[in-house]
Design a protein around this nucleic acid. Structure first.
Lengths: 330, 330
DNA sequence: AACAATCTTGAAAGCGCTTCCTGAAATTAA
DNA sequence: TTAATTTCAGGAAGCGCTTTCAAGATTGTT
């Protein structure tokens, strides 16, 4: 039942080369011929098959995006930016969800090997130096968001700085005992956010106390989930004497933390990280990251690398911004 | 630089047919030969190209999922279910984000025409009867979640029932003046949720008052966004006399609504819809939908249709469940 | 030792399309 | 009118792979 280019060519009384030209808007085709082909094709519901096209051309006209989680606005904004950038170019976006339960490296490597796309965007996926290095051998354009690798184009936000700003805010309010509700300790952004916190304390001459660092037990999504926020905050509230304020690794965690405070009937100021849309409505003070811009930038560099493969790798670091709402106030 | 099957065959001293057999685990290949091929392939970073495979086999071994929004747990759970179901079968999942700004029908039709996948899952995408019908001509397996079409396999949750349950809960508490914070009026689930509300009122002998139906102005994501929840609730709070309770079309909207109530210093009981993970932490009473099960069911029927194309279309309707937390209490 | 049965492999066709290379037809220039 | 261009369309090669067919190698049987 499915038609191919031969069926259309026959029905339109032309050769397959002409049909191909019509669909690719390439070469010269008389207007009347073109119309006939288009009419026939439409009637028969025909369109060139992606797989055959992908094989015949060298280009696939598609880029693939690897993401670990999609359930947040952080991701949504980046996605929006990428699609906006791509829509004008007639390039397709394919999203591949990297399953948390599996080996991320393996999943990604497999797709690269199979040459799905002309280029790849990695969002919030963290690999070791040697793993990043091993991708080089596929010799394919890669852009990474929210991690950095000197081997590929990358855009990231200065996590250390963001966390520093938040911590400093509390310090300037006169707080000395500031807790930190953190996440999966091996994840790069988590480490960086912890570092910013530490730096701020040190710069203010406050000694770092590791007993003030807590996390929940649920490490799904690198610990960026409500439950671990709830659990972690309970631990913080058990510290005696009670910390004066809390820095939190993400908005989602903070929402769990808020609930924990409510359940315990205690309330300490908290600043989190991400500035999800929802944060505004929950009154969360938080550190904002320019996600849309990051997505745009990453796509731009990917596209130009697809054009000219041997450009030097670029690295863009955006500055975070502290947004104060009610949660940080007493 | 990129290697193909000929390079591997040559390097391993075998024919391309053998290399192909090794990678497909098909036919008989002597163990030693197989190992040699695999070793060589691994060294050279080779794997069969998807596009060439897709063309040569009739099957693509992939299914494509169409989604309009991904920023919520509703979607995440469905995704998880589908991936769980697929992972054992060695079938790949491709996610296509249907852009809200564009014409959804066109975007989807285009992909079907191009024959991306062996089967397609539509999540929360709503089409008219004739549009659904037009997909039939592609003669390809389709499964739809959160909408129903008698032409294709579908799974949905009984929106009318869910909304009915919520409304009834308030009625039984003795409330008579119950507002409804709704969304994009042309969207099917929105209409259904409104219908359940109306039915419950009628069954209780309370007359329907359309002045109690409000929505915000921001209609992005069919009006399922925080901002329109905030705006809509402000309108509701302006109704005089103040409604005794409120039914809300989604959790996300309810979060905006909660903020509106806080800002106005007024508080009326509210029940929303979806039961996102976050709802638990915000204390939202809500209507739960068995998302994971829906995803599983949809995938199962899709897979069996791929096997046997001429099965009769199935339709599964799940029952929603009312979950009471703090937001509905006085 | 001879033959049948079974393994293992390669040659080659073909999946549906793009694109280069030609040549014919149509147009313009002279 | 003829020559020089330009436009338009077809033939055919080839993209990288799977798979059928058949032949050669190996094993088992008597």
């Amino acid at each position: 039942m499915p038609k191919n280019i031969y069926d259309i060519a026959k029905a339109a009384g032309v050769s397959i080369a002409t049909v191909s030209r019509v669909f690719n808007d390439k070469g010269q085709v008389k207007k009347s011929t073109k119309e006939k082909v288009l009419t026939v094709a439409d009637e028969m519901g025909y369109h060139p098959q992606v797989f055959a096209q992908g094989l015949a051309r060298k280009k696939k006209n598609s880029i693939m995006m690897f993401v670990p989680i999609m359930s947040n606005y952080f991701f949504m904004e980046i996605l929006g930016a990428i699609q906006d950038k791509l829509s004008s170019k007639n390039i397709e976006l394919n999203i591949l969800h990297v399953i948390a339960e599996g080996d991320a490296f393996e999943q990604v490597e497999y797709q690269l090997k199979r040459q799905w796309a002309d280029g790849y965007i990695f969002v919030s996926i963290h690999f070791s130096k040697s793993q990043w290095k091993s991708f080089e051998r596929f010799d394919v354009p890669i852009s990474v968001i929210d991690d950095s690798s000197h081997r590929f184009d990358s855009v990231a936000v200065d996590n250390i700085e963001g966390s520093y700003l938040a911590t400093k805010y509390f310090i300037e309010k006169g707080f000395k005992k500031i807790a930190n509700l953190t996440a999966e300790p091996t994840a790069v952004p988590v480490m960086e956010r912890l570092e910013g916190y530490r730096n701020a304390l040190e710069d203010a001459g406050i000694s770092f106390d590791k007993n003030l660092i807590k996390r929940g037990d649920d490490m799904s999504r690198d610990g960026f989930n409500e439950k671990s926020g709830y659990e972690g905050m309970k631990k913080i509230l058990n510290i005696d004497p009670l910390p004066e304020a809390c820095i939190c690794a993400s908005d989602i965690k903070a929402i769990g933390a808020l609930k924990a405070m409510e359940d315990c009937g205690v309330r300490i100021p908290i600043i989190s990280y991400d500035n999800l849309t929802i944060s505004k409505y929950v009154g969360l003070s938080t550190v904002h990251q320019p996600m849309y811009e990051m997505g745009t930038r990453a796509t731009e560099s990917l596209l130009s690398r697809i054009e000219s493969p041997k450009l030097a790798a670029s690295k863009t670091i955006f500055k975070p911004e502290l947004i104060i709402r009610s949660s940080s106030e007493v």
